[in-house]
Computed example of a mutant assay.
Amino acid sequence: MNRFVIADPKLCIGCDTCMAACSTTHKTIGLQAHPRLTVTRNKDATAPVLCRHCEDAPCATVCPVNAITHVNGSIHINESLCIGCTLCSIACPFGAITFSGSRGVGLAHAYDTYIPSNVRTSNPTTSSPSCFGNDILAWEPGVKNIAVKCDLCAHLEGGPACIEACPTKALFLVDPENTLAMQKQKRDDAANAGSLLTHMILEER
């Protein structure tokens, strides 16, 4: 079992603080600033969706350049190897992989100068993908899309920034060791409760 972050919808207030913290901490070390989690909302609750770091990791299986690997009980994307093919996003059962990218140095001016206006307006772009109906398929000349997903803030000693920043403590880390300890505690509690009940019944007799 790998480690992963999960949210309690009963505690989440949809403030997006987790997304801001995620973006800031990754931007400071030169990675894509796009948040690695997305707060989803419906009429009854809100909660951020994050990568579950699957043991079998279908995203890693379909990656044609092996940019997604298993590292220290979690699944990581090497942004320098990613070619932006979007296969990992399609394969992810939780919809936890998104794409972000930026134009290379000097390309912004070149794009506006040398690309005909009819091409600029007729082709889909990452900022206006409505013609596709799905931003996964959107593209823009000169922009390299890079897959981004939760990496558990491996660069931070204190753990994921989203957990630390959440004002209501709605996010927590699921760790194999902690999970086993909780399971043992529940079994012990159940056994103790059963023994107590048996003792009470015998006393009544």
Rank of each mutant, 00 (worst) to 15 (best):
M1L: 12
F4M: 02
D8V: 00
D8M: 04
P9N: 06
K10N: 08
K10I: 00
G14Q: 10
A21N: 01
C22M: 08
S23K: 01
I29D: 02
L31R: 03
L31D: 07
Q32G: 09
R36H: 03
R36Q: 15
R36T: 14
T38S: 14
T38M: 14
V39M: 14
T40N: 08
N42P: 11
D44F: 05
T46A: 14
T46C: 15
A47P: 00
A47Q: 10
P48W: 02
V49A: 13
H53K: 05
E55S: 12
D56P: 00
P58D: 10
T61K: 10
T61N: 15
T61F: 05
V62W: 00
V62C: 07
C63F: 03
P64N: 04
P64F: 01
I75Y: 10
I75H: 08
H76T: 15
I77V: 15
E79N: 09
S80L: 06
L81F: 15
C88T: 11
A91H: 01
A91M: 01
I97R: 04
T98I: 10
F99Y: 09
G101I: 06
G104I: 03
G104E: 11
G106V: 08
L107F: 12
A108H: 04
A108T: 07
H109Y: 08
A110L: 13
D112E: 05
I115M: 09
P116G: 13
S117C: 03
R120D: 07
T121W: 03
S127V: 13
C131M: 04
F132L: 13
N134V: 00
D135W: 06
A147H: 00
D151R: 05
L156H: 08
G158Q: 09
G158I: 02
A161S: 09
P167H: 08
P167T: 07
L173I: 11
V174A: 13
V174C: 07
E177T: 09
E177G: 02
N178S: 10
L180G: 13
Q183S: 12
Q185K: 09
D188G: 01
D189N: 12
A190N: 08
A191V: 15
A191M: 15
G194Y: 08
S195V: 13
T198S: 13
H199T: 15
M200E: 14
M200R: 14
L202C: 06
R205W: 12
